[in-house]
């Protein structure tokens, strides 16, 4: 097994456990913001899309890559902005709510 695959599997294993551990004690109030943030982080597929869109390997590949970059940018930008809006609703009492 190549070292790249092996270290990749280690990274996958450890990161999975970290994912379990860091959100284990999430209070119900934060279920939706957490879901929204993980959604934004899932937009990491942008990284792969960029490589395909920019590597100039023929028309079809570039086209698929460009659509993929557009789609994952929607996910990233939308995901983070939505999470931000949600958190604004959790401002401490007394602070004036800015919008929505």
């Amino acid at each position: 097994m190549s070292t790249a695959i092996e270290s990749g599997l280690y990274v996958f294993l450890l990161a999975s456990f970290v994912g379990f551990e860091v959100i284990r004690r999430v209070p119900p109030l934060f279920h939706t913001p957490l879901m929204s943030l993980t959604n934004a982080v899932a937009g990491i597929s942008l990284v792969g899309s960029l490589v395909i869109a920019g590597s100039d390997k023929g028309v079809v590949s570039t086209l698929l890559g460009t659509i993929a970059v557009t789609a994952s940018t929607i996910n990233v930008v939308g995901g983070f902005l939505i999470t931000d809006r949600m958190l604004k609703m959790f401002r401490p009492r007394g602070a004036a709510p800015k919008d929505a």
Partner: peptide, 11 residues
């Protein structure tokens, strides 16, 4: 991709 994906997958 592996780190972010795994965090997302398990979380």
């Amino acid at each position: 991709l592996i780190i972010a994906g795994a965090l997302d997958g398990s979380a």
